[in-house]
Amino acid sequence: MLDINNLQASVEGKAILKGLDLHVKAGEVHAIMGPNGSGKSTLSQVLAGREAYSVDGGSVTWDGQDLLAMPIEERARAGLFLAFQYPVEIPGVSNAYFLKAAVNAVRKHRGLPEFDAMDFLTRVKAEMKAVGMKEEFLYRSVNEGFSGGEKKRNEVLQMALLEPRLAILDETDSGLDIDALKVVADGVNRLRSPDRALIVITHYQRLLDYIVPDKVHVLSQGRIVRSGGRELALELEEKGYGWIGDSGEVHHEPPASGATR
């Protein structure tokens, strides 16, 4: 479904992704772990189309299409969803308006009839219940004054409503208490299906107790340096990132041809 080959990306002239390869099949859940600064968020932002990042090389093919050539909103309409690490507050725009505009933009693209106000409310209220959000959050401005946990629930709500084919969760677990963590995990697990793929980016193993991944990758200094099954996450939990050898927290320059200092 998603094939990332030798992806290189930089921000403000600083190289962050330095030849990243990742292959995700429909139905799979991949976890990407890594220390701070390893390029996890850059990967998610590049996949979603953030223009501040420049793609300097490599390719990303999604269902046979060149993902990198698609405008941001086209990616979203085609079924790519990024749950933000830091969801943006938009004072003055009600959450209800925002959610409905998003859902209908995606439905229109998929050739489905747009929701009218009543259908939409029925649908959104059911999903809000599932993520434990009170109805009042519909009428408040998008993310404005939401707590960290409320913002993340709102991301999971959007994910559920937009029914993406490829969802990327960018450290959605960070800063959450255990209840909110379970809500996020439950949202992801409900979305799991043979025709969907999910990429869960996280710093901690904790989330993977609730979302069992098919594959775990370790990102360090802009490359996938280890891939394995779920046991890799447990190993990281036990040993930390230092043992990876070229962790960005230890070395600030890329090691020459795999050498370690």
């Binding site: 189309g49 953030r50 941001i72 909103e73 969801p87 938009i90 998003a102």
Partner: peptide
């Protein structure tokens, strides 16, 4: 904000107008 709205499927023109309105609101 523009990126956030577009990443949810709103086209750029719609997103800009919405943010312009929000500023005035």
């Amino acid at each position: 904000s523009l990126f956030y709205l577009r990443s949810r499927g709103l086209d750029e023109i719609h997103a800009r107008r919405l943010l312009t309105y929000a500023f005035a609101a």
